[in-house]
Structure formats: C-alpha cells, structure tokens
Simulated scan of single mutants.
Amino acid sequence: FFEDFSRNLVNDFKPNLIKTDIHETDNEYIVEAELPGIPKEDIQVNYENGVLTISGQRQIDAATEDKKGKLIRNERSLTSVRRQYLLENVKEDEIKASYSDGILKVTLPKDSNKEIKTSIPIE
C-alpha cells in the first residue's frame, strides 16, 4: 500500500516545467518553448533587465451528468507554468514571438552596440 502511495505522490507532484530549446546564432537568440494545450491568449511573454519570462495557464472544466441531468461529477483544474531565461544584450524593441501547434517561438535579436565583457581585470 505505502509503496504505491509514495509512487503516486511523487509522480503527482512533478514540477510543471516548460520544455525549451534555445539556439544562438551570431545575430540572435531563438527560444522554442513547448506549451501544448495552452491557448495563445493565456500565454504571456515579457523581457526585462536581460531576463525573458514565459508563463501560461490552462483551465479545464469537466462535468458529467446522468440521464436525468443531475450532476454526478464536476472536475476543475488549473495548470500554470512559468520559466525565466537570462539572455542579455538584446534589442528589446525588436523581439518577436509566434505560436503554432503548441510551440512558442521567440526571436531576440542581439544588440551588437552593447559592450560585452569577456575578461575581468584582477586588481
């Protein structure tokens, strides 16, 4: 009994992570995030202080009625997901996002005018 209970408990509390691929080219970052089943209007994309934030939520209402129309079961669930990514030196006013077939694609053009330090002198 306890073995099955603990197995179910652990499986039910897996974190809701957004599976993401991040590609970097010479000119831009391309972020592809899986958000299956989440309507486009329930997805938020923000970029502030070098951090890209992707969040979304999906609400499910399921009701089952018997032949007489009495409610015999009603289930609701709300799933929220959120992830943040540090992507600095981006042209904030040129970021673009699209959503198709459960995949959110965010393109962040790099800002070549911003100085990138690769080494830090030691005093």
Rank of each mutant, 00 (worst) to 15 (best):
R58E: 00
Q59Y: 13
Q59W: 14
I60F: 02
I60P: 00
I60M: 04
I60Y: 02
D61M: 05
A62T: 08
A62H: 10
A63C: 10
T64M: 12
E65G: 12
D66Y: 07
D66L: 08
K67Y: 11
K67A: 10
K67L: 15
K68W: 12
K68V: 10
K68H: 15
G69C: 13
G69R: 07
G69E: 07
G69S: 07
K70H: 15
K70Q: 09
K70P: 02
K70I: 15
I72R: 08
I72D: 04
R73G: 05
N74Y: 13
E75W: 02
E75D: 12
E75H: 05
R76P: 00
R76W: 02
R76T: 02
R76N: 04
R76M: 03
S77C: 05
S77K: 04
L78T: 03
T79W: 07
T79D: 06
S80P: 07
V81Y: 00
R82G: 07
R82S: 15
R83C: 07
R83F: 06
R83L: 08
Q84K: 15
Q84E: 13
Q84P: 02
Y85T: 03
L86P: 03
L86V: 12
L86M: 12
L87M: 07
E88S: 10
E88Y: 10
N89R: 07
N89F: 04
N89S: 09
N89M: 06
V90R: 00
V90P: 00
K91Y: 02
E92K: 01
E92Y: 01
E92G: 00
E92W: 01
D93Q: 14
D93N: 15
D93S: 08
E94K: 14
E94Y: 11
I95T: 01
I95W: 00
I95Y: 00
A97F: 01
A97V: 00
S98I: 13
Y99C: 05
S100Q: 13
